[in-house]
């Protein structure tokens, strides 16, 4: 069999863009292998949401509605995925390179005795042996990886494949994972910043750096993000100084992101920062230093002081939104 199993992650019962992108990817893989694209859904999800996977080419859904999948536990999740892979005789198991996907893909690979290729950025160039490209050296190079094993596990870098709709219906099968391990830790406290757009899911990210000169100057940055429906981010010095929370730090040692549009405001663009954002489709840089390396990585640049340019961008963005 040459089936493709993918883990369709959801947040409180609804699928976000990364899951739909992964569904599109799994469908494309299935067309290459001649098998089916099969989704595994862990936890309760309504039928209307499940049917969305069908419109991205998924033919079959294993829905493990029962079972303690929240909080997420590496052991529980990887057991569920591995059992599902065995059940559907999957040759390839794919995940989004999300917090969860990155966490469990290696364990699934071990259980299935499969080779692991993390962070692939497109379809394999060959299926036999599986040969696929991925970024290495924090985005400074690309590598072609060959998998020696029959089965393989891959994680897909977000926003590299895109959404590809396809007509079709997915058959959902309620499934119970035979034997799940117990939770390996105890949860003491969970805190979520409600309603906030996640950096990992945002199409547009507005990020600012040391050039802002202090946390008290962040208002225009947040305003621009609000107008554009963007998530906010920052460079390392900013989170180190405590101007913004650590969760907003993008760069080599922070989050690696790949939005469609990335604004770098008052960020000089050290290599470590570029490494975290270079997969963005379009980068806009605003900096008063014409020599700032960020201009070398940017598609559009504005030379000027962030304290005057950013407020002007907010107004321009408002005008743009009104007219479109």
């Amino acid at each position: 069999m040459s089936n493709i199993l993918y883990l369709a992650e959801h947040r409180e019962g609804s699928f976000r863009k990364p899951a739909l992108e992964l569904a599109s990817y799994a469908h494309a893989l299935a067309r290459q292998t001649g098998g089916q694209a099969i989704a595994l859904v862990l936890g309760k999800v309504g039928a209307d949401q499940l049917s969305r996977l069908g419109s991205y080419g998924t033919q079959h859904i294993l829905h493990a509605a029962e079972g303690s999948f929240d909080p997420m536990d590496n052991g529980i999740w990887s057991t569920a995925v591995a059992e599902a892979a065995i059940k559907v005789s999957a040759r390839l198991v794919v995940f989004s390179a999300s917090l969860q996907g990155r966490a469990i893909a290696p364990a699934v690979a071990v259980r299935l005795e499969a080779g692991l290729v993390a962070g692939v950025n497109g379809l394999p160039s060959s299926m036999q042996p599986l040969t696929v490209e991925r970024k290495v050296y924090s985005g400074k190079a690309l590598a072609t990886v060959v998998v020696h094993t029959e089965k393989a596990v891959m994680t897909l870098s977000p926003n590299t494949f895109g959404l590809k709709e396809s007509s079709g219906d997915a058959v959902a099968e309620v499934w119970t994972v035979p034997t799940l391990p117990s939770l390996s830790f105890e949860v003491l406290e969970t805190s979520r910043s409600e309603g906030k757009l996640l950096l990992s899911e945002a199409d547009v990210v507005v990020s600012a750096g040391r050039g802002m000169k202090g946390h008290e100057h962040w208002k225009p940055v947040e305003d621009l993000a609000t107008v554009l429906g963007a998530a906010t981010a920052c460079s390392r010095p900013v989170s180190d100084e405590g101007w913004r929370p650590h969760g907003e730090h993008v760069g080599q040692t922070g989050k690696i992101i790949a939005p469609n549009l990335y604004f770098a405001l008052g960020i000089s663009g050290a290599v470590q920062h570029i490494a975290g954002v270079s997969s963005s489709k379009v980068i806009v840089a605003v900096n008063k230093d014409p020599e700032a390396p960020i201009f070398g990585a940017a598609d559009y640049g504005i030379l000027g002081d962030v304290h005057t340019v950013v407020p002007a961008l907010v107004e321009a963005a408002k005008r743009f939104k009104e007219n479109s």
Binding site: G139, A141, L142, V145, H148, D299, G301, V309
Partner: peptide, 21 residues
């Protein structure tokens, strides 16, 4: 279980288009 067959460098980015502030 896997092997790195070849490496390459990404295409250099085109030049940055400057917009009047």
């Amino acid at each position: 279980r896997t092997a790195y067959q070849a490496f390459s460098l990404p295409q250099p980015k085109g030049s940055c288009r400057m917009v009047d502030p």
